[in-house]
Amino acid sequence: MKLRLCLILLLAWTGVTLAGDALPAKAACCAQTASPDGAEKVLPAESIYQLESDWLDAQGVSRRLSDFAGPVQVLAMFFTRCEYACPRILAELNTLADDLRPDEQVEFLLVSFDSEKDTPESLATFAREQGLAPERWQLLHGTAEAVRELSVVLDVAYTRLPDGMYSHASVIHVLDGQGRVLYQKQGLGGELDECKEVIHATAEKNRHSEARWKEPGSK
């Protein structure tokens, strides 16, 4: 009896110690990302690609935000069941996409607020229904914690309502090839001209920045 109790105590204690200490360290700074040619690239200090959260795309493939480094990314947070704001955000993104020349390296990234219902499958269905070509559009599903972290980095306020819907700010973000937020369009409607200009200019700059991008610590 005594022996058994001691064993239980020991086991429980080991469990506690492990639970407390075995958490993986999170690198807070200067995350490195492997480029296609194998060279390590150092992200600038302001890059949101430093976030180390794991996501799933609409194909169910595990992704990190740093996977999207390279082309200009036009990012918006949304959820598929949204009936009011998100269709309008998507319409604006489509307007921006229609304005691109074929040689411009610009992609679109839709990140869902709804970590419960917007599984990779429902994101895939949504993408199909909306005619979002996978070469240009990526949709991401993440845990509630990952979504909250990204929302804080991007300064997008949102709340999950008791009925499972989401109330959220409507923001379109333009990220350069290294994940720096260059421009944010707040709210629905309004002029898209400034946003278009930033996208074109960044795509142009991005084309010439490949060399500089490889210098560690470049800003």
Partner: peptide
């Protein structure tokens, strides 16, 4: 708090259209 950015006073997508 975890969701400190959840109080929507302006710019929200619902309720106050």
């Amino acid at each position: 708090v975890e969701d400190f950015n959840s109080a929507l006073v302006t710019g929200e997508s619902r309720a106050d259209s």
